[in-house]
Simulated assay, not measured.
Amino acid sequence: MENTTWLANHTGGSDFDLVGLFSQFKYPALLCVVIFVVFLMALSGNTILILLIHCDAHLHNPMYFFITQLSLMDVMYISVTVPKMLMDQVMGVNKISAPECGMQMFLYLTLGGSEFFLLAAMAYDRYVAICHPLRYPVLMNHGVCLLLASSSWFLGSVDGFVFTPITMTLPFCRSREIHHFFCEVPAVMKLSCSDTSLYETLMYLCCVLMLLIPVTIISSSYSFILFTIHRMNSAEGRKKAFATCSSHMMVVILFYGASIYTYMLPTSYHTPEKDMIVSVFYTILTPVLNPLIYSLRNKDVTRALKKLLNVGSVFQETIK
């Protein structure tokens, strides 16, 4: 009997308990409703943005192609964690099997890593559009856009394929309680009874590399952009360039800031409560903010939305 218990504790066959977000709040039912509303807003906002870009011919350019990819990632990203969390709260269950935990971990790592590189591709797109406008159609043709987007997805999946198997094959001989609302690598790693210092160093170096490459591309792109904007004679041109770039920079700061805290700060800075709050920020709030940032601050998108609403109202009057 003791051997069976030892084996169950040292393998991934047992379920994990997600002791997460709702246990930290006095009114879990209210929090559940709020998160459900935010989830619906994220799904509807990103879906509408994707449909607008697909339906409006004026939005068929590289910048909006990348925004479509970003919205698709956000829809998938929030769907990886929130539905499971809400269903567990409603059903009164907080368990997740090892295969489900591994799949959840792989998907969020892949989508998070993909978004890192996609944001860098978007910064490069803005650099070409503003600094080399005459060569823009050639330098950012459809083939190049597809290559950049597919490379972002591929590099993100490498992140998932590297960290998920290592984390899920660690020996778990401590409590099976994950103090988080989903299977995030640092939270699961804390349950291991083995020495994870080498793995933590590897993860830190990989995260530095995954952040350093996109950050270098983004900072270089915006340095050239700011220099070009400063030399512009047209005030309207400067205003338009700033408006386009500021939307992207807001998304970059939101997403990268939370990721740097989670994966690059020393463990002494972390507590389960802080980690969950930061994770809520980049897994739940960021997907709902991105479509708002790119739509409310973008005249082309708001114009396309008004056009779609006008077509819808005309269609309804025709039916009547």
Rank of each mutant, 00 (worst) to 15 (best):
A241R: 08
L43C: 11
L109G: 01
A149Q: 04
S279V: 05
D17C: 04
V252P: 01
E184I: 00
L226D: 06
D74C: 08
M122Y: 03
A121N: 06
A258L: 01
T81K: 00
M210W: 13
Y124S: 10
L134F: 08
L198G: 05
Y256G: 05
Q104W: 05
F65A: 15
I213Q: 11
V82I: 14
V208I: 10
L226M: 13
M76K: 08
S223Y: 15
S14L: 15
A29I: 01
S295W: 01
F39V: 07
L254W: 02
T169G: 04
S14D: 09
F255Q: 05
F172E: 01
Q316A: 14
L72P: 00
S219Q: 07
R297P: 00
C245S: 14
M168V: 07
F117S: 04
R238L: 08
D88T: 03
L170M: 14
L292I: 10
G113V: 10
R303N: 14
T302F: 01
S268G: 00
V93C: 09
M41A: 15
C183W: 01
L198V: 11
F66C: 08
P272W: 12
V90H: 07
T201A: 14
V311A: 15
P214R: 00
K190P: 00
M203R: 15
I225E: 04
I218Q: 06
V158Y: 09
V75L: 12
S234F: 12
G102W: 04
V128H: 02
S219I: 10
T244C: 08
N141G: 09
S220G: 04
I96Y: 00
V37D: 08
G112E: 02
V34S: 12
F36G: 15
G102P: 03
Y27A: 13
E2D: 11
E184P: 02
F255H: 05
Y269P: 04
L148S: 09
P291A: 08
P272G: 10
E200L: 11
N9F: 13
L139R: 15
N233D: 13
F65N: 13
I166A: 06
M210Y: 14
K26V: 12
V188W: 01
Q24R: 11
Y263Q: 02
V215G: 01
H179G: 00
S23C: 05
A149F: 04
V188C: 03
T318Q: 07
S279P: 05
